[in-house]
Amino acid sequence: MARARSAAALAAAVLVTGLGGCGEADRPEPDPGGGTGGGTAGASVPFELVLTDDVAVSPDGRRVLADCWEGICTWDVATGTLTLVPDRNQVAVAPDWSTVATVDGGDVVLEGLPDGAPVRTFRGLDDAEVTDGSPVTAVAFSPDGQLLAAAGLDGRVVVWSVDDGAEQAAFTAAYAPQTLVFSPDGSRLALAGGGPVEVRDTADGQAVATVQGSGEAGALAWFPDGRALLGPGAGDVPTVWEAPAFEPVEELPGVRLHELAVSPDGRTVAVTAFDTTAVRLWRPRALAGAGGVRSLVGHVADPGAVAFAPDGTRLYSVAADDGVRAWDVASGRPVARTFEVPEGPDR
């Protein structure tokens, strides 16, 4: 996706402690029975070959990236070939793909991609009440890569300058955000996942707006021109709010939002929903002029994150068992290319 959103699970399990467990010592061991080690005794947690909370496309459109159960996976778009960076994970990818963000306790650490060389550490989210795993719940880069934001379980949000690591703004939200998304110009930061959608000024952290009636799903995206924000409305229905007042102008009824992405031209929204294997392409009438919805069918498992190619001609979606699929946006048809799926622990 165009965003760099929170990775709730950093191995093959959905962890209840947000981004906890980013360090290698905390990575759960795969369980051939379909769960992961280190979980609650007697409980079964879902195993994911490919994690579904985030997917990113390189600036040149030639590679796709997502976390897998045993490391960072990247795919060659032309061939579908998988390259694995083992024993690493990420919570956000820099827009230029030069670095990835990882977490270490309450710190956010930038590492080179793919060499893993440490670049810079950002501090300020330590939480004495978190003794196992990390308190960090969400991390995001600004579209120009100059700013980095992160949130903690106590609701604290910090915005830093990537160049020198200086803290630019800090504030405490009403809840622990699961998603942070910068506006296209980097001047605003939207928060979601745990309470009403909030919009903050990145220069000083001051509140710009609280979106009344918004849901608590952790999915958000700005339209490319910054004139509207898309996220969970009442009942987590996908909703468009127009800036600067952030009043609702359109919704996609009958859908419980899971993940979303907005096309580079701002006319098409890709939406995944809970309890369905279909990906929807939605054209809001309020912004695109001519509305409509198409369903993209082909995933075996329920898809999560979605991301458009930089030129907008392709859409990529990711599901836990069948991995990455590519779609032709104009026709809505699957691209006739197979993306390799990483081997599971019992293969």
Results as ranks from 00 to 15, higher is better:
residue 7 A to E: 15
residue 10 L to K: 07
residue 15 L to V: 09
residue 15 L to N: 10
residue 18 G to T: 03
residue 28 P to Q: 07
residue 28 P to N: 03
residue 29 E to S: 05
residue 36 T to G: 11
residue 39 G to L: 11
residue 46 P to E: 10
residue 48 E to L: 14
residue 52 T to V: 14
residue 54 D to W: 01
residue 56 A to H: 15
residue 60 D to I: 03
residue 62 R to W: 00
residue 66 A to L: 11
residue 67 D to H: 08
residue 69 W to L: 05
residue 70 E to D: 15
residue 70 E to P: 00
residue 71 G to S: 01
residue 73 C to H: 11
residue 78 A to V: 04
residue 78 A to Y: 00
residue 83 T to L: 08
residue 88 R to H: 10
residue 88 R to D: 08
residue 90 Q to W: 14
residue 90 Q to P: 01
residue 92 A to M: 05
residue 93 V to F: 15
residue 102 T to L: 11
residue 103 V to W: 05
residue 105 G to R: 04
residue 112 G to H: 09
residue 116 G to V: 03
residue 117 A to V: 14
residue 118 P to S: 11
residue 125 L to Y: 08
residue 132 D to Q: 14
residue 136 V to K: 09
residue 137 T to H: 04
residue 139 V to D: 10
residue 154 D to Y: 10
residue 155 G to L: 05
residue 156 R to C: 02
residue 165 G to M: 12
residue 172 T to Q: 13
residue 174 A to S: 14
residue 174 A to W: 02
residue 174 A to I: 05
residue 179 T to S: 12
residue 179 T to C: 13
residue 185 D to P: 04
residue 190 A to H: 03
residue 191 L to I: 00
residue 192 A to L: 00
residue 194 G to K: 04
residue 200 R to P: 09
residue 204 D to S: 03
residue 205 G to K: 06
residue 220 L to P: 12
residue 223 F to S: 09
residue 224 P to K: 00
residue 228 A to L: 05
residue 230 L to V: 15
residue 230 L to N: 00
residue 234 A to F: 13
residue 236 D to C: 00
residue 237 V to W: 13
residue 239 T to I: 01
residue 243 A to P: 10
residue 244 P to A: 03
residue 244 P to E: 02
residue 251 E to L: 12
residue 257 L to H: 08
residue 265 D to W: 02
residue 270 A to K: 01
residue 270 A to V: 01
residue 272 T to H: 03
residue 273 A to R: 11
residue 275 D to M: 06
residue 283 R to S: 14
residue 284 P to R: 03
residue 292 G to I: 12
residue 296 L to P: 08
residue 305 A to K: 10
residue 307 A to S: 12
residue 316 Y to G: 10
residue 320 A to W: 09
residue 320 A to Y: 08
residue 323 G to M: 04
residue 327 W to A: 06
residue 332 G to Q: 11
residue 335 V to G: 04
residue 337 R to S: 12
residue 340 E to Q: 15
residue 341 V to E: 07
